[in-house]
Amino acid sequence: MRLICAIIISFNPDLNRLREVLSAVSPQVDRVQIVDNGSSEVEGLVALVGLFQSCSLMTLSGNLGVGAALNLGIYTALSAGYDTALLMDQDSIPSPTMVGDLQHGLRWIISQGEHVAAIGPRFFDRHSGKLSRHVVFASWHIRRIDCRSDNQPLPVDFLITSGSLVPLDAFAVIGGFNEELFIDHVDTEWVLRARSKGYRVFGDCTAVMEHDLGEYRRRIWLGRWREVPIHKPFRYYYTFRNSIWLRRRAYAPEDWRRADAVRMVQLFVFMTIFHPHRLLVIKMMWRGLQDGLRGRMGPSADIRARGLTHEKTNS
């Protein structure tokens, strides 16, 4: 039996939503470790954590970014003797059987002799109610693949951080999450680095959770109706900067580079047309491109000084 520590990264969380997360996660794991990334008010968070016997809280002095918070949580779990981590956002709610389903899938994959970096669930979008599909890189786009009962779990090319079950012995080979990325592409970079070291990620077809993509959605017509997630403008700085930086890494495969180039063009077009603060978004994208080329990483001091980083920083 694996000892599982759930690691939840929080930043100014909705306490009611986080209570739902803890109520759903706690019965499925051996321990819950919350790493709070410098929330402005922690009294309510401390009180909430006190309601759950198997939950502990680590408070950071400031927002160190998602990669740093994940690494601290993982090192804490390793030092306490846990061999598996469940990585979670502060507002992703697993189904009652999600962790057990992921464990079953993980055991099966390992029995086949695979080097596993992570296995993750599908998720219901809390806005649209749609169930996601797992993805692979295909030429110039990301292709969504269907689950089949005779082909489960599926090898995939990408997993979001939230909901991922990670055997911690993989970190000795792959290394921790890149803290310089701060927010966006933290999960992408780690998965691509894992692939370059002979590890694979898998999507489970049974495990599901409820997840939130973007601050809100905008429904648009482009050949068909699409729901486009909208973030605050500063997020597009990190998206573009980190894409440019990651494209220049030797371990970034060509199939990802092509698919990401298309995604960046789509983001630019969609956001400059549909984002309510399109001029600021364009400025953030442009600055991100410049800093990515210059190799200026870490949190942007200018963006933080202007108070633009008050959105949650989960991947």
Rank of each mutant, 00 (worst) to 15 (best):
2 R>C: 06
8 I>R: 15
10 S>I: 08
12 N>V: 02
17 R>I: 12
17 R>K: 15
18 L>M: 11
18 L>W: 10
20 E>S: 13
20 E>M: 06
25 V>H: 00
26 S>K: 15
27 P>I: 00
28 Q>F: 04
32 V>F: 05
32 V>I: 12
33 Q>N: 11
35 V>K: 15
36 D>S: 07
36 D>Y: 12
36 D>W: 06
37 N>K: 15
39 S>H: 13
40 S>F: 08
41 E>L: 07
43 E>H: 11
48 L>A: 01
48 L>W: 08
48 L>D: 04
49 V>A: 04
49 V>W: 11
50 G>T: 13
51 L>A: 06
52 F>R: 02
53 Q>E: 14
58 M>L: 09
60 L>K: 15
63 N>Q: 11
68 A>Y: 11
72 L>F: 10
73 G>E: 10
79 S>D: 11
80 A>F: 06
80 A>H: 12
81 G>R: 14
81 G>I: 13
81 G>W: 14
84 T>N: 03
87 L>D: 01
88 M>L: 03
91 D>K: 14
94 P>I: 00
94 P>S: 00
98 M>R: 01
99 V>F: 10
100 G>Y: 13
102 L>S: 00
113 G>Q: 04
118 A>C: 02
118 A>H: 01
121 P>V: 00
123 F>A: 00
125 D>C: 03
125 D>F: 01
127 H>T: 14
129 G>D: 02
130 K>D: 03
132 S>P: 02
136 V>Q: 06
139 S>I: 05
140 W>S: 06
142 I>A: 07
145 I>S: 05
146 D>T: 06
149 S>E: 08
151 N>K: 13
154 L>N: 06
155 P>N: 07
155 P>L: 06
156 V>C: 03
160 I>W: 07
162 S>R: 00
163 G>H: 00
167 P>V: 14
169 D>G: 04
172 A>F: 15
178 N>W: 03
179 E>M: 04
181 L>G: 04
183 I>T: 15
183 I>G: 02
184 D>C: 05
185 H>K: 13
185 H>P: 09
192 L>P: 01
195 R>A: 04
197 K>E: 02
198 G>S: 03
208 V>D: 00
210 E>G: 00
212 D>V: 15
212 D>R: 15
215 E>F: 12
215 E>V: 15
219 R>S: 08
221 W>R: 03
221 W>F: 15
226 R>A: 08
233 P>Q: 01
233 P>W: 07
234 F>C: 11
237 Y>G: 03
237 Y>K: 15
238 Y>R: 09
239 T>P: 02
239 T>L: 09
239 T>A: 06
241 R>D: 05
242 N>E: 06
243 S>L: 09
247 R>V: 12
248 R>T: 14
251 Y>N: 07
253 P>V: 01
258 R>H: 11
259 A>S: 11
264 M>S: 05
264 M>H: 06
264 M>T: 12
266 Q>L: 13
268 F>C: 06
269 V>K: 08
269 V>D: 08
270 F>D: 09
276 P>G: 05
279 L>H: 14
280 L>P: 03
281 V>G: 02
282 I>M: 12
287 R>C: 03
291 D>I: 14
291 D>Q: 11
293 L>H: 12
296 R>A: 04
300 S>W: 04
300 S>D: 11
300 S>H: 15
301 A>W: 15
302 D>K: 15
302 D>M: 09
303 I>Y: 01
309 T>A: 09
311 E>Y: 10
314 N>I: 07
